[in-house]
């Protein structure tokens, strides 16, 4: 018992000593011109990034219990650009309902969480250069002959409550049956309660990687309502925004995302290729 207590005391003391040392070095290095989030990250020598943990294959927990996915690779690339090492990173899992609050409260420095860049969100946070795009796709059985959104008029389609596309699909004459989460929606789809499941095409891609779905189901209907993804950054954080944007352009010009799609078995998108070409031109002009 006594030894334990001594150990505890020693760890505590060493932590305090380390913090003290850090803050004293902070004071000296703080004289650098960088302020805002970028300065904070450099002082901390670590970047805290909010990522998805339930979105195969973009951000999920891999077999060894570590974060994995295309967005995780992107996060590591950015970190090595900003801090010269892809290990100086801490992942915080976020969900759609809390990610913007996490950023605003300072729990994370940056959001790379399959987030659509929308006008309404731009009123509360800033967005980086767009690095990917997704739209609304439909997961449906291979044998039911559905090939256009018009085929779905008057049919029941499963969805997720609160999704931005529910209103538009309803106006197209589709009867939406919306569930709170994807687990319920996939179950309802398998039970035959709806003809298809309208969801982010990038999320459906991940589901189709599972053998039990890949066999009988497919994404046949053209993807609609395509919206770009941006990384979330706190408002008025110009230096950090520039650092992130430079890293994104460099990454795109190198074809990192196009290769990443192959690595994670995501069907290659026109969007990623176009962005690569654009980024290449921008880099040459610089």
């Amino acid at each position: 018992m006594i030894i334990k207590k001594i150990c505890k005391f020693l760890t505590l003391a060493s932590i305090i000593a380390v913090i003290g040392a850090c803050s004293s070095t902070d004071n000296t290095s703080n004289t650098s011109t960088e302020s805002g989030t970028l300065g904070k990250i450099k002082n901390r020598d670590k970047i805290i990034i909010g990522v998805k943990a339930d979105y195969v294959p973009f951000g999920f927990i891999g077999e060894n219990g570590e974060n994995a996915g295309l967005e995780i690779d992107i996060a590591r690339y950015l970190t090595s650009e900003i801090l010269q090492s892809d290990q100086k990173i801490e992942f915080v899992p976020v969900v759609a309902a809390n990610r913007i609050e996490f950023l605003q409260q300072g729990k994370v420095d940056l959001l790379i969480a399959t987030m659509n860049d929308t006008e309404k969100r731009r009123q509360v946070i800033d967005f980086s250069e767009q690095y990917y795009a997704s739209g609304t796709g439909l997961l449906t059985k291979k044998d039911n002959g559905v090939s256009t959104w018009d085929d779905l008029k008057g049919k029941k389609v499963c969805g997720i409550q609160g999704s931005f596309y529910n209103k538009e699909l309803t106006q197209m004459g589709i009867e939406m049956v919306n569930f709170p989460g994807t687990a319920e929606a996939y179950t309802a789809l398998k039970d035959g309660r709806c003809i298809g499941f309208a969801y982010d095409d990038s999320g459906i891609v991940g589901k189709l990687l599972e053998p039990e779905w890949g066999e009988d189901w497919h994404q046949a209907v053209p993807v609609i309502l395509v919206q770009p993804w941006g990384m979330g950054i706190r408002k008025d954080d110009q230096l950090f925004l520039e650092a992130v944007n430079n890293a994104i352009l460099k990454m795109e010009a190198e074809g990192f995302i196009v290769q990443g799609e192959q690595k994670w078995k995501i069907p290659s998108t026109e969007y990623a290729k176009e962005r690569m070409e654009k980024a290449k031109q921008l880099m040459e002009n610089k």
């Binding site: 059985k141 039911n144 559905v146 008057g154 049919k155 029941k156 009867e175 049956v177 039970d191 035959g192 309660r193 709806c194 003809i195």
Partner: peptide, 14 residues
């Protein structure tokens, strides 16, 4: 059989 889903669905709806 439910014509709006094209397949058999459980009798009990939501």
């Amino acid at each position: 059989y439910d014509p709006t889903t094209g397949v058999d669905r459980p009798l009990l709806g939501s």
